[in-house]
Design a protein around this nucleic acid. Structure first.
Lengths: 207, 207
DNA sequence: GTCTATAATAAGATAGAC
DNA sequence: GTCTATCTTATTATAGAC
């Protein structure tokens, strides 16, 4: 038994699936082995322990997640463009791996040490220093009077919250609201439009 | 060894603390026993198994959570009052038990079966039928032209998202943003104000 | 009701053959 | 590299004395 990108890749894929859905503690090495089409012994041969395997998966997923986030921040000072771009891209990325947010947030809830470490590793690499810091974009827009006076951090928190929430609440949403399919094209486009409008109108000067 | 509300109560309290922070799978009966000042055998004497104990805790926490949510929905058609009331009350409730949201959301991520069942049990009880359904309040405000045309479900999703997000992201937020204390009076009041303003401005008719 | 001691099992990890 | 078999430990659960 071999190719599908090699055993190691198959293990990582299986492990990712299991860890994402069951979390670190709920995951079973047995299940991962079966999903990868091998046995437990081989898991330990490739990745010494459950903890290392988890660390590997977590690092990879978080890296991708942080990358998605950063890639969703456009280099513009135009708040209308900024909002449209961020909402559009971030929601699209989240929709591609809907379980990831819950997974990461649950890990964060355990203290956030692991995630914090990975964020640091990730940011102090590549040319990430050059990237525009999302909070500063809002701060400048306020300072220059292009939007009304909002607290930049609070604003970003709100923006992240509205993007993320439908995905973390998805299973229960789809149970409660009849016929709702969070991952459908229809819902996602509707969501983007409503979020954009709410925030865009929400930051205009009064009058 | 006795009083503190009795052994059963002490067990439940200890179990709640452990389950909330570590989740169903991460929790250990040993730890719960120690926290309750008893031994494992007695845990099983009171609650047959880990699963039953968990179910008990989960039901109680979810009940309280749903109760908090419902109690945060005011009986008014005035959207300004509605927003202020809901944001104020819901955030206050969340702040009182900040780990609960993450806990519930993680359970939901596991499929939402448990939570869905409890929601049904809870709603088909007492005089909850009489309670104003939050989505309808928004729908009526739109229909009567008191606010601009928003999708009620999307709007409520956004509202929940912005209220909940700071709490689920709390550990990492406090690591990243220097000096930030999500549970402080200062932060909470600031948050309420910013959220209210964003949404209130966001639902006005354009012009 | 509460304890100590112990059983039963599940899960992670390793040895050793191929 | 991969497997089967096995060890070790952690964890839930129960028996039985007090």
């Amino acid at each position: 038994m071999d190719r599908d990108g090699g055993t190691e890749a198959r293990i990582l894929q299986a492990a990712t699936e299991v860890f994402l859905n069951k979390g670190r503690d709920g995951a079973r090495m047995q299940e991962i082995a079966e999903k990868a089409g091998i046995n437990k012994a081989l898991l330990h041969y490739y990745f010494r322990s459950k903890d290392r395997l988890y660390e590997e998966v977590f690092r990879k997923e978080c890296g991708a997640y942080i990358g998605s986030f950063l890639a969703s921040v456009p280099e513009t000072e135009d708040m209308e463009v900024f909002l449209r771009f961020f909402i559009d891209h971030y929601i699209d990325r989240l929709a591609q791996r809907p379980q990831v947010v819950s997974f990461v947030l649950w890990e964060i809830q355990q203290g956030g040490e692991r995630f914090g470490r990975i964020i640091r590793e990730f940011l102090f690499r590549e040319e990430n220093d050059a990237r525009p810091f999302i909070v500063d974009i809002v701060a400048r827009a306020v300072a220059s009077g292009r939007i009304r006076k909002v607290d930049p951090i609070q604003f970003i928190l709100s923006l992240l919250g509205v993007c993320v929430y439908p995905f973390v609440a998805r299973p229960i949403l789809e149970r409660i609201v009849d016929g709702l399919d969070v991952l459908s094209e229809a819902f996602l486009e509707k969501r983007k439009e409503e979020v954009f409008r709410l925030f865009w109108e929400g930051i205009q000067h009064e009058g």
